[in-house]
Design a protein around this nucleic acid. Structure first.
Length: 584
DNA sequence: GCCGTTTTCGGCCCGACTGTTTTCAGTCG
């Protein structure tokens, strides 16, 4: 297999399957076959291990859900050649650009192929021009309103910034919540969707409400100052767009249906489908209004009730991805997911010694007000010059200072630590003897992100094998929507971490959320332990811990998997053990 | 194309809105 394909990401292969599904839709082929292609794409996307590695190791893909002989052949072909015959064939049968039209809201496969057949349109630009010239109205089932909607959709698409970070979505949910508190008509509300599942990015917000007087409630919601336009409104809903482009859908439900609605709008879609199928197997019907036996609603007011009727334990939203949670819920084997209140300290933060904005003492006080028993101060090492990284002399002094301040503070212990750079060749950026004297050492990559997969793997393994680091900081170095993760053999690094008792960090910074959730689960399965840290650069950033907790929950982690759930004395004990641990 | 204590065929989740039409097709979540 050529080098490039050997390292092909699952997401890339998944995209090709989605492309085939789009093309099949444009050709109006069997909808069930199309769904099957999409299911295959989803399976690939959600998989934590790379199929490229499986194939190279001679493993079969047939045990994976939604992947049969036909898909396995196509995957192997894609890995070998970068594409597959079926895709190329379909691309020849459909005009180039036509699949792009499917991205426009209210343009589906039927409309797109009609546009091409009748008007010869196969690009977004041509579609926009046709709308402006009112040519769409010449088509059947196509009037002025649809044409205007399509035109607006193209404009939005052109200016769309896509999905927003979970933190940004959270900020909007909280500001909407503050508004709702002032509206007496609204007696119950909940934000559902990918926000509730804790996905790292959110495409839109689904807000479910119950109100005695819906008209009054809608009137009051429209006063939300962030609204830039009302997309549509009815008796039971209000759809708006905010100034930043985010779409917010408010929907009203009766209490008897609220749980069913919450379940339905929380998703994921795949989780819902699995639940509905389960209902159907019992001769029932599940929809957003409840669980029905014939016309009689047998559950619907709460999620707990619905899951119970389906003979399942209640599934935390973060796990609802149809990735094994339903089988676990059936066997009462869901993990007791970690919670924010179990965190006893933060193990990664910066101060004015390097690129932080607060002093050691200020950070310590902020940690104390959050109920923490300890805080590790981990400023940068010398190579990170933009951050004013510490050389050996400055670090020694800084560590003394941390210990001195820690010594005189009550109810909180400070760990003298560092975030040491992992250099290009895998060596650490500071003398190992000095590092061994510190309480806590995080090692991170901040440069040379483009090394080959082999070199990058060697680099990380070498750092892990140094014997002086406790934790790998933001292991993939990705910045969501800005910088791709570095490429390395995750399994080899995990194996090294397990051997040398080195932890994986879950960096809680909203633009990092690194490790990502699927890798988190894989590291868990490999027997590696975690630290959930904020990488705070000021006192406020310490609150980012909530996002790390969400990643951990999506990665199926429990309290025992996370080092900083230990109280301070247990942590000290554990760290002494870690420092003494010798390579096996 | 996938799947299977109803297993190699015949199913495959469900409902609502919109805009266009007078009974429905297409899109969406």
């Amino acid at each position: 297999m050529p080098f490039k394909e050997r390292h092909m990401e699952n997401a890339h292969i998944a995209d090709l399957f989605d492309q085939m599904a789009d093309l099949l839709e444009l050709k109006a082929e069997d909808p069930f076959r199309i769904r099957s292609y999409r299911n295959t794409a989803r399976t690939l996307r959600d998989l934590s291990e790379r199929v490229a590695d499986w194939v190279e190791a001679g493993k079969s893909l047939a045990d994976l859900p939604n992947i049969g002989k036909s898909s396995e052949d196509k995957i192997r072909e894609i890995l070998k050649t970068g594409t597959c015959a079926r895709l190329e064939e379909l691309q020849k049968e459909v005009p180039p650009g036509l699949p792009d039209l499917l991205k426009v809201p209210s343009v589906g496969p039927r409309t797109a192929s009609e546009l091409y057949k009748k008007l010869g349109i196969h690009t977004l630009a041509a579609l926009k021009a046709a709308c402006e010239k009112h040519e769409l109205q010449t088509l059947a089932h196509m009037g002025a309103k649809t044409e205007a909607k399509i035109l607006k959709g193209i404009v939005t698409l052109e200016s769309s910034e896509g999905r927003i970070l979970l933190k940004e979505a959270t900020d909007y949910v909280e500001s909407i919540g503050r508004l709702i508190k002032t509206i007496p008509a609204i007696t119950k509300w909940e934000a559902a969707g990918s926000y509730r599942r804790g996905r790292e990015t959110v495409g839109d917000l689904d807000i479910l409400l119950h109100a005695g007087d819906r008209k009054a409630a809608i009137g009051a919601l429209q006063q939300y100052e962030e609204i830039s336009e009302t997309i549509s409104q009815g008796v039971e809903w209000l759809n708006v767009r905010l100034q930043n482009g985010l779409r917010v859908d408010f929907r009203f439900f009766e209490p008897a249906a609220f749980g069913a609605a919450l379940m339905y709008f929380t998703g994921s879609k795949a989780h819902n489908i699995a639940l509905r199928k389960r209902a159907q197997d019992n001769g029932w019907k599940l929809n957003e209004y409840g669980l029905f036996k014939g016309k009689k609603r047998i559950a619907g007011s709460t999620e707990a009730d619905l899951y119970q009727h389906l003979n399942l334990a209640w599934v935390p939203p973060e796990l609802r991805e149809d990735a094994g949670e339903i089988a676990a819920a059936e066997k009462e084997a869901l993990p007791q997911l970690i919670e924010l209140k179990q965190i006893k300290g933060d193990l990664h933060c910066h101060t004015t010694a390097t690129d932080g904005q607060n002093t050691i003492e200020e950070m310590a006080r902020a940690a104390l007000t959050r109920g923490y028993e300890y805080l590790a101060i981990t400023d940068h090492s010398q190579s990170t010059r933009v951050a004013g990284g510490l050389d050996e002399t400055r670090l020694k002094k800084h560590a003394e200072n941390i210990r001195k301040i820690g010594g005189r503070m009550k109810n909180i212990e400070l760990l003298a630590g560092v975030e040491v750079d992992i250099l290009k060749n895998g060596e650490l950026d500071l003398d190992e003897k000095l590092l061994a004297d510190l309480d806590w050492v995080v090692a991170s990559i901040h440069s040379h992100f483009q090394l080959s997969r082999e070199a990058m793997t060697d680099r990380l393994v070498k750092a892990v094998e140094s014997g002086v680091i406790h934790c790998l900081g933001h292991p993939t170095t990705r910045l969501i929507g800005q910088r791709d993760p570095i490429q390395f053999d995750f399994d080899r690094v995990l194996e090294a971490c397990r051997k040398h008792d080195v932890l994986m960090e879950i960096n809680s910074a909203p633009e990092r959320m690194d490790l990502p959730d699927v890798l988190c689960k894989r590291a868990l399965e490999a027997g590696v332990q975690f630290a959930i840290s904020t990488d705070a650069h000021n006192t406020n950033d310490l609150d980012f811990i909530r996002y790390g907790i969400i990643v951990a929950r999506r990665g199926w982690l429990t309290k025992k998997d996370v080092l900083n759930t230990l109280n301070v004395s247990a942590l000290r004990k554990r760290l002494r053990k870690a420092l003494k641990a010798q390579p096996l």
